[in-house]
Amino acid sequence: MLPTLLEHTSTRVNAEIDPVLHIWGWEIAVYLFLGGLVAGLLILSSLLLWRPRDTAPARILQLAPLVALVLLSLGMGTLFLDLAYKLHVFRFYLAFRPTSPMSWGAWILVLIYPVAALSGLLALGPELQGKLLKKLPLVGVLAWAQRQRQVLLGATLAGGVGLGIYTGLLLGTLTARIQWNTAVLGPLFLTSGLSSGAAFLLLFKLDEADRHRLVRWDMLALAVEGVLIASMVLGFANAGAAGQLAADALLGGAWTASFWSLVVVMGIAVPLVLESIEIKKHLPLVAVTPALVLLGGLALRAVLLAAGQDSGFRLLP
């Protein structure tokens, strides 16, 4: 048997690398959260608007794809703040590297803009469209978009799914960080994005039928999120020495308290219970539930981002 490692000392004290890797801070946590939220908004609004309606939907649904673009721009803003060499940001768009999720993400982000903007035009009700057309010469664009309605909504949906999965894969493919070494992160971030998107829409005034549908979808997304988190922890716990370290961090280690209290209890369990009570008792929805879901989505990214950076191979013998 190998003797136990008693002491490890290193002369390396590189900033942001030692003693614990800390290259990504709040900027990336906020970006990952907004990316997921935008993905959720694009997917849900495409689904809700799939069939043309006789009456215009609630204003927030009409504006959802455009609001998503504003939030996406905010997210890209925090992403930009994180870059160490900001003047070189254009370099993302002089290359496409198929092995790099970050390269995929950079291109997905720019492809989403025109598609979601056109979907956004379609989503506007006659009143808002009239106001917009008075200000901008978009009659031709609108007519073209209306002819391509299904294609555009389908492309927005696909863009949302791509965005949601990529934010998870971005971390999941960085295999040097044990806590991120799980393919579950892609679907987990996508599902969390869906529940965040639903929660965001539920903060606003909606038709009774749409509200009901969104609460049910939100409950489904939260339940799936719970299952994915359980799979993630089980996967780690049964994946050798490296996985054991990752499982320990969430089951008694440094990240246990924040993960279970903020992500699982506050962000998933409590909203799920509140929503089921609201549905069963036909109680009017309060803003507390969606706010908890949104805070839980942010906490999921923040905790996993920090826990992952704290889980390098240097922890293994």
Binding site: N14, A15, D18, L21, I23, A84, Y85, L87, H88, M102
Partner: peptide
């Protein structure tokens, strides 16, 4: 000249051999 300082390479290195130079590149 091509580096944006996105730090993906730093996160991907199991040996933590990289760092961000004060001028911005890795």
């Amino acid at each position: 000249d091509k580096c944006t300082g996105c730090k993906a390479c730093i996160a991907s290195c199991p040996y933590d051999a990289r760092y961000v130079h004060p001028e911005g590149y890795v």
